[in-house]
Design a binder for these strands. Structure first.
Lengths: 298, 298
DNA sequence: TAGCCGCTATAAGAATCCGAATACCCATGG
DNA sequence: CCATGGGTATTCGGATTCTTATAGCGGCTA
């Protein structure tokens, strides 16, 4: 038992093998060769005193032990990436890489013009957009700035509320032309409803406030908010959509505006450590301004 | 500009140089040699395109850039250490290393017998104790299990409330013999009071509830809760102390028990990822049981 | 002021690690 | 049934990296 501290580089190889499923693929991804990766895994196994993979002739199979270690290795990779981003923006002025995470709808429909304008203003700046609804992106350093529809709970974050995004029921005018416009909650039950497949905080709130949207009543379900939006636009049926977003397309009509309305608080959050970073501060400010403009309908 | 991805091993050298202040010391700490560390730093500087240290003949001086990158490097080290702990406990049964964090008083006065009993039960288990009041230990993976006097706010944590620790004013009987026992809040003002030097959540609560303990009135201040406890035991004056703790020493007398009482919720928290770990589950259970016994005065 | 200690920088030999080539295994498809 | 493609294991020469050693610099102390 050598009791050797593993070389951190071995962790990188380990993670890559986990993610690609084979030594060869990991080697390609890392710009190394298969024997090298194989040696790294061997070394790591002896250093940890664990069997990480069961060898076979079509790729490695990760053992349970390897799977348990995976989140740690992924954490290393995320932190290393964050370090690189931080380093890229060290020089004076607004330059370097900023990684922004947001929900799919916001990321696709709202952020691009905001980020484009920001980028035009700062040619040295690069922006990366990561679309997900996971709340822990910032803590795991997977992103620098997050746009979220709920108040970030973590202590180490700087969070600013930029306003409330109004959600309402919408449908395409063609759909309404064919099926009529519901005038009441009862009539809504006769219509094709678009809703969520996956349970999440948002849909629980909807179900709580509006029994009509109980999961069983939905004629279309999709994990992705974007898919729902596309379904509404395609005239599939009636679904929830941000009011400001729908207002951009004259053919989208709001349904039952009095009866159905939800307000989602919108927050921008950033890790405290990045307070001094010019590129992050500039991006934060641009997002705050741009989202406020979006919310107010400018 | 080579645009090379830094070797993760360089980060380890970088952090060690930051922490030790010189190439040579870092080399000793890592079991390498000074020219090696020097080359790592050089490589990292060119890879990141940053000047990390200003060379001088008595150690390096870290630049601002290096200081900004420090938390990331520390995060890497913490995650790597957590990975090793996780790996050490992979084998079946309760074995490996568990790292517990707690406040100083709990860690010194309450936990040792609990941990000793646990260890006696599981000879393959090693325990590490880290004493601090920082809330983010678990998220940065600096510890596996935390004993805290407030409800952990993070989502990714499993937290269990084990009860309320009662705090009260105490003094040594010798002190009271010399100065008398205060019978009212007014009399307390004539006495020597032991309190906190640093502002924190606890003292703010005390000040809010008991004006007598405004900071200016304190005749003895110490950052460390242990130092306060020692002062009480030494007969220096009257201060706050856990009631159960004071009850162990017959010469410590509770003062104004009706007027002054604070109840601190006590929580045990663990990262969700560790749920499946036998060694962490066993430690968690032992802490829950032991702390409950302490709180109930068993 | 001389001497010592700890530090960094540099050069050259030793040890290590990597990569190319190869052998072999398995699944797939004509 | 054989050819093919993607995978792992192994070997060996060569490039890279580490260590050893040496020199130079600055601060401290006698």
């Amino acid at each position: 038992m050598a009791e050797i501290e593993p070389n951190w580089e071995w962790y990188r190889s380990f993670l890559q093998v986990l993610e690609t499923g084979s030594l060869s693929a990991a080697a390609r991804a890392l710009g190394l060769t298969q024997p090298t990766i194989g040696r790294h895994i061997d070394s790591l196994e002896t250093a940890l005193g664990l069997k990480l993979f069961t060898r076979s002739y079509d790729g490695f199979a990760a053992t349970d032990a390897a799977q348990e270690l995976r989140p740690y290795a992924a954490g290393l990779a995320a932190t290393a990436a964050a370090l690189r981003r931080a380093a890229s923006g060290q020089a004076a002025g607004v330059r370097g890489v900023v990684r922004v995470t947001a929900s799919e709808v916001i990321g696709v429909e709202v952020l691009p013009p905001i980020l484009a304008a920001l980028r035009a203003q700062h040619p040295g700046l690069s922006l990366e957009l990561m679309l997900s609804n996971r709340a822990d992106d910032l803590l795991h350093r997977e992103a620098d700035i997050a746009v979220r529809m709920f108040r970030p709970a973590q202590d180490a974050l700087m969070a600013r509320r930029v306003g409330g995004v109004e959600l309402g029921l919408h449908a395409h005018e063609q759909y309404l032309a064919h099926h009529g416009t519901p005038a009441s909650l009862q009539e809504l039950a006769q219509h094709t409803l678009i809703g969520f497949d996956r349970e999440n905080a948002f849909i629980r709130r909807v179900q709580q406030e509006y029994q009509a949207f109980a999961r069983a009543d939905l004629a279309f379900r999709a994990d992705s908010d974007l898919a729902q939006l596309a379904a509404i636009r395609a005239g599939y049926g009636i679904g929830f959509c941000q009011v400001r977003l729908a207002a951009r397309d004259r053919r989208l009509v709001r349904v039952l505006p009095q009866q159905f309305a939800l307000n989602l608080d919108t927050w921008i959050a950033m890790h405290e450590d990045l307070r001094g970073s010019a590129r992050c501060a500039a991006t934060f400010a641009a997002l705050a301004e741009g989202l406020a403009a979006y919310i107010e309908g400018r």
